[in-house]
């Protein structure tokens, strides 16, 4: 499974793509693994309660797992593309 990171998140991680070498995981496990390998991301994507910030969008294969599947329990496999992105404001 691969994480795609956008805008400020790719800058914090130092890369716009992170591959996790796992055949299957829950979304929670995949998210935790991302933060473990790229700890500088935590400040960008977590709020003070250590939850995913309201302004950051997380997608599983282009869909919102919290609306369409099992949220953090969504099972992702080696072919799943995960994405995290913030809004940007420049004009």
């Amino acid at each position: 499974m691969d994480w795609r990171l956008f805008a400020t998140l790719s800058e914090a991680a130092g890369t716009d793509e992170v591959s996790l070498d796992r055949e299957e995981a829950t979304l929670r496990e995949a998210f935790d693994a991302l933060l473990e390998t790229h700890p500088d991301l935590a400040a960008e994507v977590l709020d003070e309660d250590e939850q995913l910030s309201d302004h950051v969008r997380l997608l599983v294969d282009g869909a919102d797992p919290f609306a369409e599947t099992d949220g953090w329990d969504t099972v992702v496999d080696e072919d799943t593309e995960l994405a995290l992105f913030p809004p940007v404001s420049g004009g």
């Binding site: 805008a7 400020t8 302004h55 809004p87 420049g90």
Partner: peptide, 20 residues
């Protein structure tokens, strides 16, 4: 629906700060 609220100030810098 996509972004319910704005990021904390400074979390996503503007063009003057970040360049474009």
């Amino acid at each position: 629906c996509l972004f319910p609220q704005a990021p904390p100030e400074g979390a996503v810098p503007d063009c003057a700060t970040a360049g474009v």
